[in-house]
Nucleic acid binder design. Structure first.
Lengths: 153, 153
DNA sequence: CACGTACCTTACGTTTACGTCAACGTAAGG
DNA sequence: CCTTACGTTGACGTAAACGTAAGGTACGTG
């Protein structure tokens, strides 16, 4: 019997994670997570040589993954992460962050429109195909399965 | 004086476009558009050596650009384009296209959620920054411009 | 007729985002 | 002590999506 995993805790009683745990959870490779560190997107603590990830790191990974799904580059995402760190800093810097935020908002609003439009088109396509298929069924018999081999892809 | 551009027309009276015109219109380089052709996303007609783009090509370019903004690879987009071409083909193939369509729809719905969530968070950040800035203004004077140098980032 | 402009091809270079070894450390368990 | 699991640091490889010459063709114009 394997015995439940021991849930790593740090000196302040906070739950921590190993790189392997995060990799499993987020469906990333170790290499990928280390790469994010190389690129300055993560900066986990260390226990000797080993990386120790906390709440904050985990939250950043969530944002990184989302950013990637949205098609942003790691560099973009890095800039992006500073927006979440913000809340302190000098006035000029805050204004800069706000400018960044608003640019990002514009981009995302555009993207939102793109997604919605594409979804609408795909639904039309789906309906069209369904139409064709049901009409085909009406004209010919009910059998059509396993007549031909699957095409190469 | 340059004289208005002569609006190229093909033998069927259909408006056509040169690669340069499309590049300008879509904000792409010639190289990029040719690359899409190399990858099989476009297949313009030819006038001797020169590429001649018609309605269909232009429409595909619209979809390509949108796909790219949505973070899809050219390979994805190519698959994607076949969905729009569809409407003919054998039953098995139609079913395959419908499967593709629905997978794509799922991905986009996920993306839609991502975008909306990110937008909401960014709006919160924006508001937070505005708060900080206005409170700062209340406490100190109205002047704040050019007090300190910009921080490194 | 030389020049500019717009197009073409071929081909190597570049950036991003990791993959893929290689070689090694360490702690747990049989 | 040996194995297994999990971690570490280089360092080189690679696929995608173009960039960037370098050089050639074709057309219209001063």
């Amino acid at each position: 019997m394997p015995g439940a995993a021991p849930l790593r805790i740090d000196s302040d009683g906070q739950r921590t994670y190993t790189i392997g745990e995060l990799a499993d959870e987020f469906g990333l490779t170790l290499r990928t997570i280390r790469h994010y560190e190389d690129e300055g997107l993560l900066a986990p603590a260390r226990d000797g040589m080993n990386r120790v990830y906390g709440h904050r790191d985990r939250a950043r990974l969530v944002l990184i993954c989302r950013g990637k799904r949205l098609g942003f580059s790691l560099a973009d995402i890095k800039e992006f992460l500073t927006l979440y760190d913000g809340s302190d800093g000098q006035v000029r810097q805050m204004q800069h962050l706000q400018a960044l935020t608003r640019r990002r908002v514009s981009a995302l609003e555009r993207q939102l429109a793109d997604v919605q439009q594409t979804l609408a088109e795909l639904h039309r396509i789906d309906a069209r195909i369904t139409d064709h298929l049901t009409q085909h069924l009406r004209r010919h018999g009910i059998d059509e399965t396993s007549t031909r081999e699957d095409k190469n892809l």
